[in-house]
Amino acid sequence: MKNTTLPQLYQEMRRVRTFEERVGELFVRGQSAGSMLHLSIGEESAAVGVCARMRDGDTFTTHHRGHGIFLARGADPDRMMAEIAGKDTGYCHGKGGSMHIADMGLGHLGANAIVGGGIPAVVGAGLSARHQKSGAVSVAFFGDGATGQGILYESMNMAALWKLPVMFVCINNQYGMGTRIDQATANPDLHERAAAFGLAARTVDGLEVEDVVEAATDLMEQARGGTPAFLAIDCYRFYGHARKDKSPYREELEEEEGRKKDPVLQAREKLLTTGLMDTAELDALDDEIAREMDAAIDFAIAGEEPQMQSMFRDVYAPTEPEPEPVRTRLDRILAQG
């Protein structure tokens, strides 16, 4: 388990914030493979606060806005940025991209671009953890939009029925694409739904990362003991749904207000007022992180494009012979040079 002092939490949140800013930059520079890049700026306390309580061997799935979560679980920003750039040097050699990064070495069962789509996998990973007596917890990260999907309720019921070491983390950034939660959800107290299924359930304000850590500590302990848990974390999505979205569906005034709820600045202020760090130390840390993420951009841009032949690999597990149509197509492409 990671140390969870405020300076460390701040550092991790700043890394997420800066990484996401650099992803936006990658897009502006025309170096991202896709334009559908979903930034988690404003939600850093959710990723960092929950991941602070995860251990080696724990598994997780994320939604389409999952860069920060993977980073907070220990991902290499170079390989993440390269994947977002669609390069062979990325985590998935360019086949997954921003919305489908997976890496079993870090327990990442996969980001998923279908709203709610990754949730049931943690039920199975929880079953697996119990069967293999690994002591692991499996955590599903998703947005408030996924509370509109039936699969969340199927999964919570099964997790509770079978008393699995599973935790559901709803990052409530108030928007499902362009639709505000109050336009989509009859009862905005999301944890009440989970409680109805017998889960240990809470909602926490994401402004203070330490509050998130505290809630995650309690709930993950319960999950590890076989009482599945649900944590809703209230925050605000600072920017549009995806990098291109200019948020025409909400007022600028609302955005200004929303962005005041900034967990990174909040932690920074607290570090200053409590005297844990001074401005010079914080600036030096921020600069160091900026250099780390600049290097990730450089790594991504310098990476090789994937070889065309590799497109036909990995349709099935790597040890398996490929099915004939793939070979036929591959031969054709190679013959064309």
Binding site: M104, S128, A129, G150, M158
Partner: peptide, 21 residues
């Protein structure tokens, strides 16, 4: 035996399979 929740138990199988089962 599972509940009548095909998405959940098939999706759960995917997670279990990726986790070594």
């Amino acid at each position: 035996d599972t509940p009548i929740s095909e998405t959940a138990f098939i999706g759960a199988a995917v997670g279990a399979a990726m986790d070594g089962m």
